[in-house]
Design a protein around this nucleic acid. Structure first.
Lengths: 211, 211
DNA sequence: CGCTCATCTTACTCCCGCGTAAGTTGAGTG
DNA sequence: CACTCAACTTACGCGGGAGTAAGATGAGCG
């Protein structure tokens, strides 16, 4: 928990790019563990085994440092999602792959997903927009698939996509926080089946009460 | 946006309980608009047409003030959810009612839902626990219904409930932020149908690939 | 009318954490 | 071996906001 990841021999000088990468890693640890507000620039510097002004030689301020990380991991999520949906043409498989991608994202990279899904800086427009935009792009990718196979309107398809993405995000986060109650792939399969049952053959049961 | 809700004639004295209610209302406005961190006790006091020490005569500190509001609205959500699920014995209706309850919650009471769903203080254990507990209670209510009608295991039922609650929360929030693209009851119906298609007759398609 | 006590105000203190000015160290180069 | 320039340090300024004395004010009551 307080493992200094990588503060090798406080006192070693590093070429600029290496140092920058290391600072980003240290910042990620601290922002993830504490959130934006409780994270102190001093602690980030400490964790990198370096003094504060060094941090300011690489980033103009706390906010920019945070945004750099947010940007990076947002991209990762969208990319994972795109890959998942392009990995097959079978829609049933697509659903599974898509959920898997969400679970992978949540499970990976030092819980960086907390920056994207649980930021405590969403009141700042820049952050809110970034988070929502990421969310929208994921939904849009799924929406395209849905529209291909149904006669549903664009707006409705988008809302369904939003609901599905919300489902994925929520269940993945829950699964992570309760490791052990259900193994990863079982959770993925279960939720994917729920989603697939929900959307497959949608057109066959239009506005009449189904069941 | 800067409507002082209720700063009637700065200078009127109020009996203790009335003042307390008014302070809570003012605090809610500010916390909702700015989030916990950006909210200033001065602004809350101002908005209530009162000076800061008055605030401290009613609440020991900023945190307790916030927690009081969080507690209150968490209860409201769980209660709405319980009512929805008790309002009928038809499970199809239950799903609709449950989603309606979520949308109502999000649409109501000065966007107080932001305290419960979008708190920027979730890094504080007290707040995290309260939010998650609320979430769990909603899921538990739904989980009971699911368990009644399926042979699914408890853990799996719970995970499904989590997914459904996540879907409700996400789509309700999205709908609110994009007022106008879809009318409220259309959105509710759409998402409810997605959920119902997902869970109804679950047992009929067990671990074999459906469709 | 003057006493009392809750309500409310002005005007601070104090801490915390971002960002910076100014100075130090040491690796590579001619 | 002196010179240079980037990498790094210590030590501080400073603003913003939570929380707090200490005093004013006014409604109700005897």
């Amino acid at each position: 928990m307080t493992a200094p990841s990588d503060a090798r021999a406080r006192g070693t000088r590093l070429p600029r790019v290496r140092r920058r990468r290391q600072l980003l890693a240290a910042a990620q640890e601290v922002f993830v563990a504490r959130g934006y507000h409780a994270a102190a620039m001093d602690e980030i510097a400490d964790r990198a085994g370096v003094s504060k002004p060094v941090l300011y030689q690489h980033f103009p301020g706390k906010l920019e440092l945070y945004l750099a990380l947010l940007e990076e991991h947002s991209e990762v999520l969208v990319e994972k999602q795109r890959e998942a949906l392009e990995s097959t043409h079978d829609n049933r498989q697509r659903v599974t792959a898509s959920f898997q991608a969400y679970f992978d994202f949540v499970a990976g990279d030092g819980e960086a997903f907390r920056l994207v899904f649980e930021s405590d800086l969403r009141n700042l427009p820049a952050v809110r927009e970034k988070s929502e935009h990421t969310f929208q792009r994921c939904a849009e990718l799924i929406g395209e698939v849905i529209r291909q196979d149904t006669s549903i309107s664009d707006e409705e398809a988008h809302l369904l996509s939003i609901a599905l993405v919300g489902m994925a995000e929520t269940s993945a986060r829950y699964w992570l926080n309760n490791h052990g109650s259900v193994p990863k792939d079982a959770a993925e399969q279960l939720v994917a089946r729920l989603a697939w049952r929900g959307i497959s053959g949608w057109d066959l049961t239009r506005s009449d009460e189904d069941d």
